[in-house]
């Protein structure tokens, strides 16, 4: 299988790595791995102390009104543009979709005016300049824009490791026309790993089915939520994969935290693990599993996989772009 995702231009103009509540609390290693990769790829980025929550979890659980979400999105856009890092890189698909949705709402003059009334209280304004400069990208897109450099950076081959993609709904389904590649067969995660020698799965049964989390559905309707997750786990085990790679912490929590619980309750075995794409790619490029990828925060035991790919053996990796 060859790479199917179209090439996109290299990112220019400064990246703001948008921190995510779920990533920070559940899988901080995914953020660490992203930073590590940005440095390897020579992508200039910042993490801004003034960045606030995207409100996604609150909004989708009907706790936060839409005006609040839009207001915070406008504020975050102002922060990024003022700082000269107008390219948002979202680690979480919820952040991605809600900020992009807000961008569209802010194109309506009345809503923008209402929002700016509130922003005036903190001395900010969502102007045409901000609207023109801000760019909302999933981290997958930023990494893909630099994928040409991957072959030269590989330090641990992943030959024979079979990977499949769990496409994040809020990336693929909210703005399907803006997805890089095919929204119904999203391939960036596998295409990013292609050069490392992985075996790609491509399309599989239930690929477009969601993870089952559904924000509060996980707690309100656990039976349906887990049934959906189980169905997807069952289909993936038929594909004989080694790793399901993720691009959204919501999905990762649903799968990684509940994998063994579902195995126990269903008396089935799903012999594979879950990792964020950034973690697996960083491992292939020589990152440290603990320091750079935070594998200890996973509920599943990923040690057998790490041994298989030799990730417990140290490799020499340059510390930053431009260094030997």
């Amino acid at each position: 299988m060859t790479t199917t995702t179209p090439d996109i231009p290299a990112v220019t103009g400064g990246v703001l790595l948008f921190r995510s509540c779920l990533i920070s609390t559940e899988y901080p290693g995914a953020e660490a791995a992203t930073k590590w990769l940005f440095e390897r790829f020579g992508i200039e980025y910042t993490v801004h102390p003034e960045q606030s929550c995207c409100t996604g979890l609150g909004y989708y659980s009907e706790l936060v009104p839409v005006a609040t979400s839009v207001g915070l999105a406008a504020r975050n856009a102002c922060v990024a543009v003022e700082d000269g890092h107008p390219v948002m890189s979202y680690l979480c698909s919820t952040c991605y979709a809600i900020n992009k949705k807000a961008r569209n709402i802010l194109q309506v003059p009345e809503y923008r005016a209402e929002t700016n009334k509130v922003l005036a209280g903190i001395g900010r304004e969502y102007t045409d300049e901000v609207a023109g400069a801000i760019r909302h990208s999933h981290t997958m897109e930023i990494l893909w824009s630099a994928h040409d450099s991957i072959p030269d950076l590989i330090r641990r081959r992943l030959d024979g490791i079979k990977v499949a993609t769990h496409p994040a709904c809020h990336y693929c389904k909210v703005f399907p026309d803006e997805v890089v590649g095919d929204s119904e067969n999203f391939m960036i995660p596998e295409d990013l790993l292609e050069a490392t020698g992985v075996v790609k799965t491509g399309l599989y049964n239930e690929k477009t089915t969601h993870c089952g989390a559904g924000f509060r559905q996980r707690f309100v309707n656990p039976a349906i939520s887990m049934a959906v997750t189980r169905e997807k786990l069952r289909r993936l085990s038929q594909e004989h994969i080694d790793v399901l790679v993720h691009m959204c912490p919501n999905c990762a929590v649903q799968f990684d935290r509940h994998h063994e619980i579902i195995e126990d309750s269903s008396h089935e075995k799903y012999p594979f693990v879950h990792l964020h794409v950034q973690q697996l790619l960083a491992l292939a490029l020589g990152a440290d599993p603990d320091k750079d990828c935070g594998v200890a925060s996973h509920s599943q035991d990923v040690e057998p996989l790490l041994s298989r790919i030799g990730a417990r053996n140290k490799v020499t990796v340059a510390t930053g772009a431009g260094l030997p």
């Binding site: 049964n205 239930e206 690929k207 477009t208 289909r235 038929q238």
Partner: peptide, 8 residues
């Protein structure tokens, strides 16, 4: 229908 799934 969103998706059609083939059984073994």
């Amino acid at each position: 229908v969103g998706e059609i799934i083939e059984e073994p």
